[in-house]
Design a binder for these strands. Structure first.
Lengths: 362, 362
DNA sequence: CTGTTAGCGCCTTCAG
DNA sequence: CTGAAGGCGCTAACAG
């Protein structure tokens, strides 16, 4: 592994010049720059990031703080962030909070954040007071996705409007007995996304003059499995809902499973609509309200990079279009009609439903 | 941000002693160690990883080389690796190869690997000669998951045996017209996992004295969407298969979608079995051959850490149980019977099939 | 435009 | 068991 002085010697210049030439900062004579570049490639030289960091005080690393690594929303956002960061020569450091189904998670510590990154992106993580204080004390730029972090830019969708789109669609189809899966307890109010989808559901139902049957509001940890388990309760009541909004596509799949399990057809007996348009929604023919998670990840990364790089010699990305002056970017969501919703008591559709066959009863 | 000398001053010792006390290496007087620890916590001191790396030559970072960040297998493995690394105070650096559906990917460069990590874990990535040479030149430990990397330890499942389990199950149910989804072209032989599942399928069929209809062997980029698209061809032939093995659960879902789309019921008209037991398999009632990806990720991480830490003062993990002396660990896979497979021409099952309702035809 | 020279904060011999 | 001191490889003034 060659060092900067090897290159300097080979090119017949000083290490400072090598450093400047390789980073493209300040002005270096084109001829000498050329010589340096040639020497560097010949020696297969790569500057030590660790030494560069120590000397410059910048790591070119961004910490991604996330409760989950595998769930669709989080994995998709992380992937988009990582790709964007790399376009600017930055790297992603995973700070995995290891949440177990959104109830408990590891806490943010000075240990895990200190001196490791130039900034942080949080993905849907509500911070406690002391964690927020820690972040503030670090004095580094932060951008939040989904759940807001007080005092920092936020990239998100309008959860209430998203739920409204879902409910409106069901109402348009003639439904009035509408359930909701993905409820969280009142003390989880700090988990803003689940909370505002739930309260949004209630508000929209009220706007339509529709009654919310509390037995149709189903708590769930937001996994498909738990949704399948919990949604079974939906069919124990009389009247049962004719349609349900799920807080996420994964839960919507769980609801479809529960419906089938208890002998109900989707959408003939029960319309189901999700939120996300996750990777399998198309194949599973799930009607959903689409959000663009890749755009959210990209916007978060460019926002952070803008703060970090603007004013420096390097090219810095522009702030994402549509961001307000106080650093808020709310992305639109759109209804995607597929086959899990249908007109109330509608005739059997000409398309076969993908999920949900009634139990064969004697 | 306090430095090591702040702590040294506060504790009334030298920086060397602070360094030793905090890392727990060599012998430090319990009393002075106590004083150092106290001073460190009071000052909220965290050693600069970048300075420590520069001085020690070790980064405590492991690069995870992966073609995908969001697909189930990869995300699950990454999550498991990351958790294991952190138990030993190591961090994960994502090296995303950004494959576009397994056809093309970014190449490994000296730039992205050099001086950034103490070792690498590759997840299902076949290396070209020059990339392998680069890795060798780096002289760092490497562990491969899935696709082997010549000369390094390998954690994997027996793909041929796994496919055999799937085919055996279908044969047990009376099927002989069996298709396969997930074929790759002969020139993709280096992509060992898809390739050996495909050749395994052929071999096992031959063992059963069963003919493989080439029209039932469906190529696919291993995404659910493409599987749905390609598998439609399955139903254009006469005879059509009565059962199909999919190379992964995601593709199995695609096959189910295609079946439904063309008016076939699963499992009444077509049995479908996948490989993986991915997160939604249970809820979707998919019969599959399960592999434990978390165990694979964990095994890869402990293998690497063992190499890195054994011989040092730090505690090092044992090599995973079952690893051969030449560094090969083959994990078992198991059949998980659910509802997408059934006896050929069997009576309608008492359980409702979850996916797959026949087209309502006039 | 280029070279010289301090550090960046820590680890690691080497003495004591 | 502890302290002193020399780097690790690079960046960033500061001269020239």
């Amino acid at each position: 592994m060659s060092t900067i002085s090897d290159v300097a010697r080979a090119a017949g210049v000083s290490v400072a010049t090598v450093s400047r030439a390789l980073r493209g900062v300040s002005t270096v004579n084109p001829a000498t720059r050329e010589r340096v570049l040639r020497a560097a490639t010949e020696l297969d030289y790569v500057a030590s990031p660790t030494a560069a960091s120590l000397a410059s005080g910048r790591t070119r690393v961004i910490g991604i703080v996330t409760p989950f690594l595998t769930r669709w929303f989080f994995a998709t956002a992380i992937s988009a962030i990582e790709k964007t960061l790399r376009e600017y020569g930055f790297h992603a450091l995973l700070v995995d909070l290891e949440a177990d189904s959104a109830l408990r998670r590891r806490e943010l510590t000075n240990q895990m954040l200190s001196k490791r990154a130039d900034g942080f992106i949080t993905i849907n993580v509500p911070l406690r007071e002391d964690e927020l204080a820690l972040l503030d004390k670090l004095g580094l730029p932060v951008v939040a996705i989904g759940n807001p972090v007080a005092g920092y830019p936020l990239i998100h969708i309008d959860d209430q409007a998203t739920v409204r789109t879902a409910v409106d669609h069901l109402v348009d189809l003639g439904h009035s007995h509408i359930g909701y899966v993905g409820a969280v307890p009142a003390e989880a109010e700090h988990r803003l996304v689940p909370w505002s989808r739930l309260t949004g559901f209630r508000a929209v139902m009220a706007d339509h003059g529709l009654r919310v049957h509390e037995e149709w509001v189903i708590p769930c940890d937001w996994s498909a499995q738990d949704a399948a388990r919990q949604a079974a309760a939906l069919f124990l009541h009389d009247p049962a809902p004719t349609a349900v909004v799920a807080g996420s596509d994964e839960m919507a799949i769980g609801v479809m499973a529960a419906a089938t399990e208890s002998g109900h057809r989707v959408p003939e007996d029960l319309s189901v609509i999700g939120i996300d348009d996750f990777v399998l929604a198309d194949v599973l023919r799930l009607t959903t309200v689409r959000q663009d998670v890749v755009a959210q990840g990209r916007a978060a990364a460019t926002t952070l990079l803008h703060q970090l790089l603007s004013g420096s010699a390097e090219p810095s990305p522009a702030l994402p279009a549509g961001m307000t002056s106080d650093g808020r970017l709310t992305l639109d969501t759109t209804l995607v009609k597929r086959r899990t919703t249908s007109r109330l008591r509608g005739t059997v559709s000409s398309h076969p439903p993908l999920l949900g066959t009634p139990a064969d009863r004697p």
